[in-house]
Design a protein around this nucleic acid. Structure first.
Lengths: 240, 240, 240, 240
DNA sequence: CATGAATGAGAGTTCATTCAT
DNA sequence: AATGAATGAACTCTCATTCAT
């Protein structure tokens, strides 16, 4: 069970600039073999290919996607593909790079005007889960590819690590403030709890079709459950 | 992200016969298309093929494994493969079926002579993690295959569900006894916490090679961390 | 379309012993590679194989029939097949030989107590068509095999020739008696008319499933039509 | 006994436009799965493959023909085959389609300036037989394939039906004019007589090699014999 | 830059036949 | 005689990649 720790949730109590510095590495793990197109036509074709690739990958999966499917979808010749990408891996990298922004910046940031750890945690989890839901197909794709291509395994790892470290800092911070249980190692706790949320996200948004009868999980219930368990696990005070 | 919910951990406070009845389904999801060999020689060849298949799968992964690699490893002709299996999927099913016993019955069962929920939980997690570690390569394989073959996705799901339900019963039981937080839904909590442990197991035993520098996680620390977080999350009492 | 000239119809005005002498050759065109079984058990197994082969051939066709299908049907081991036959061709030969009696002797013989050529012809055609109908599946099989195996092409040819020659003699006889048109060569006329009836038989009894809506041909109408055309073609007198 | 009723002979006394409308269906029973090549080079390759396929099929038979034989003969790579055809069946369809024109339109049409049924019939039969002779190898191939591939069985049936119906109309027409025997059903008579000619053609031009000693049939004798028998069978008047 | 046909290595599968038991 | 597992040659089809136009 590949849990996704490539995209992990949690709380963010740290300063924004640090976060950014952490996010840098996962952004560019792929070497740009081809230089970007010079002409306008080139740019258009390239963009069409990336868009088509995303569609085909999400529909057929990475392994079953044939390059000709992609070029067909992009309405260009098979050979044109190689003007922009060396192979399937490279288009996928382009697809992920393009979507990365939204996947990495859950968009919440910090809850304004409060220091309540519980509120911060909840907002953070909500933002994470919402982003996961938005990009569910891509996350599924990433999981699949990580099983097969080491480059993307690495990509997934870096993304997960960024979240885990960010959350670990948050935990350490709360421990220092006396708000969180000091008995646990912040890093390990972050791994466990970040993982917990990512598994829930994966199950809810990616594997949901697998579940035959089960009613789809209610989003808010998901948020409150993982938040509550997380808070409890770290023994946030004033809880009830 | 494929989190593992196919193999989930947890605590077992329920009666043994119930547990068994739950574990039954995942045991035999694959129809035996080929009938078992009648002669002794046949049994030997079949066993050699299954063994070879496990080796090749673990070494090369499911997708890169070629049937001829397997027959070569088993020292038999390519055609002999088809005496026992219809295709790659079927050998894999045989491999998993053979290993299933150990993967499903972490071997612990109950801690004798105690009702202490914390002790029970810890023993349960230790047993689960130990079994995961023993079968790490196979778990990795299962993750990989589940991404590609619906049959095995289903297999993974059933296994996960069995654990999740078992743990959900345990949680409900503790809630009834007033030992666990009654605010959370036992099923959702079980999903989250079981998932948490399985991710940790996956990261520790499967993805360990990925982690370049990080020191390998200490097994006992892993057990105590997840146990503590789990206990806290459910607000076990008497906690320090 | 496979018309059958291996089994041709017609009229038989010649003496029986001549006919028999013609039928001899087609009976044994196949070399008996294996000698007949000595023990009683052997005879039983061989018989079971021939019976099974006929069933499988008629069901699946010669080409799609696998030897293991036959042995399975005969409830014996694959290897046992080779105790009695060298290959698929040989079983088929055995099957045809066994059925030959009924296929070659339409069973009518002569219409007793009449010299009326029309009555004789009609009886002959009726007997031929009835035999064809009885053995339709085998005839279909023979057609199929003849397209593929030279040995059976030869077998088919000999059988057809026997009928054609017999009918040619009948025609020559009638010409001598002044009853049939003397302008046509008896042999050629026999080829044409015998062929005509065999095509009709093939279409009616073998290809009947092909015809989607068409009502199945009425047997008696078939008999009377071919008889009338045949009689007309040779300008039998007194015909209306 | 593969008689051909797929290609049947006869007389054509009907208006041309009707005939055309009947011949349409058999012309295109195969769906063009692959779209036709756009470039000139593509057209050349495709044509080479069809030509090679015809040669190989006629030489080795449909079943024994290997795809690599065809590509080798066409001097192109094995994979190129699949640019134009999905499998062996499809090339064969292309081969037959290409030859269809000549096989379907025996080229005679009507004898100009005469209403003499006998002359019309003879010209029609001559044209049919000549076309059969020209395409003998292909007709043999069609017979063979029809025994094995349902699609081509259907193809054969449609072609036969077209001829049979055309001749049936001719017969009905002559009956109306009082020239032909009114006792027989035009459709059944057409089936029998068309079949008669097609068997003769099959025997003369396809199975001729089988006949060891027999002198090859004289073409003109063939024409006059079947014509005479046909005319007699329908009791054309003024016959000597 | 775009096109789309050509390439060819390589994998899975079938099944008649053999042969040790 | 019977058994049934073992053999391995043969063939089809896929698709990423190249390259002439």
């Amino acid at each position: 069970m590949a849990s996704d720790s490539s995209k992990v949730p949690g709380m963010d109590t740290t300063a924004p600039e640090e976060t950014d510095s952490e996010q840098a590495p996962p952004v560019a793990p792929f070497s740009q073999l081809r230089e970007p197109p010079t002409t306008q036509r080139g740019a258009r074709t390239r963009a069409a290919l990336v868009k088509a690739a995303r569609k085909v990958f999400e529909r057929d999966g990475y392994l079953d996607a044939r390059l000709t499917d992609i070029t067909k979808e992009a309405r260009c010749a098979a050979g044109s593909f190689y003007t922009y990408f060396a192979n399937k891996e490279e288009v996928l990298a382009a697809v992920l790079l393009e979507a990365q922004e939204d996947m990495m910046h859950p968009g919440m940031g910090r809850v304004q005007g409060t220091d309540d750890p519980h509120a911060v945690l909840e907002a953070s989890n909500r933002a994470y889960l919402a982003a996961y839901k938005r990009n569910a197909k891509l996350m599924a794709l990433l999981e699949q590819v990580a099983q097969v291509e080491p480059e993307f395994r690495e990509f997934r790892r870096r993304r997960g690590d960024a979240f885990i470290r960010r959350n670990a800092r948050g935990i350490a911070d709360l421990q220092a403030r006396g708000v969180a249980d000091r008995e646990v190692d912040p890093m390990m706790a972050s791994r466990a709890l970040s993982g917990m949320v990512s598994v829930m996200a994966y199950n809810a948004f990616v594997r949901s079709e697998e579940q035959e009868e089960d009613a789809p999980v209610d989003f808010e219930e998901l948020v409150s459950t993982v938040t509550r368990l997380w808070a409890n696990a770290l023994r946030f005070p004033g809880h009830r």
